[in-house]
Amino acid sequence: MPTSISEGKDWSLRLFEQHKPDTVCDVGPGEGTYARLFRPAHHGVWWTAIEIHKPYIRKYGLKNTAKRTDRYDEIHNLDAREAPDHLFHRDLVIFGDVLEHMPREDAVALLHKAEAAGCWNILVSVPIVEAPQGEVDGNPHEEHVHHWDADDMDGVLAGLGGRVDTMRGDTLGVWWWSRRT
Rank of each mutant, 00 (worst) to 15 (best):
P29C: 01
V27P: 02
G32T: 07
A114D: 01
L15P: 06
H43V: 10
P21N: 14
G44D: 06
L13N: 01
D85R: 05
D70Q: 03
N139H: 04
T166N: 12
E31K: 03
D106F: 14
I57M: 00
G96C: 09
L157Y: 03
G169F: 06
H141W: 05
E115M: 13
E115L: 12
S6V: 05
I5F: 06
F95S: 03
S4Q: 12
D152E: 15
V174N: 12
K63E: 14
M167L: 02
I75Q: 09
V108L: 15
E74R: 10
V136Q: 09
R104E: 06
E74S: 12
I50M: 04
A41Q: 10
A131H: 11
L99H: 02
G162Q: 03
V129I: 15
L62V: 08
K9W: 13
Y56E: 11
A117M: 12
E82Y: 02
D152Y: 14
S125K: 03
P55S: 10
P132F: 03
H147V: 15
L13I: 08
D170I: 11
D152F: 03
W46I: 05
V126S: 04
A35G: 10
E100T: 08
V124I: 12
T48A: 11
D85S: 00
A49I: 01
M102T: 02
G30D: 05
D85T: 06
T65P: 13
R68D: 15
V164N: 06
D73V: 12
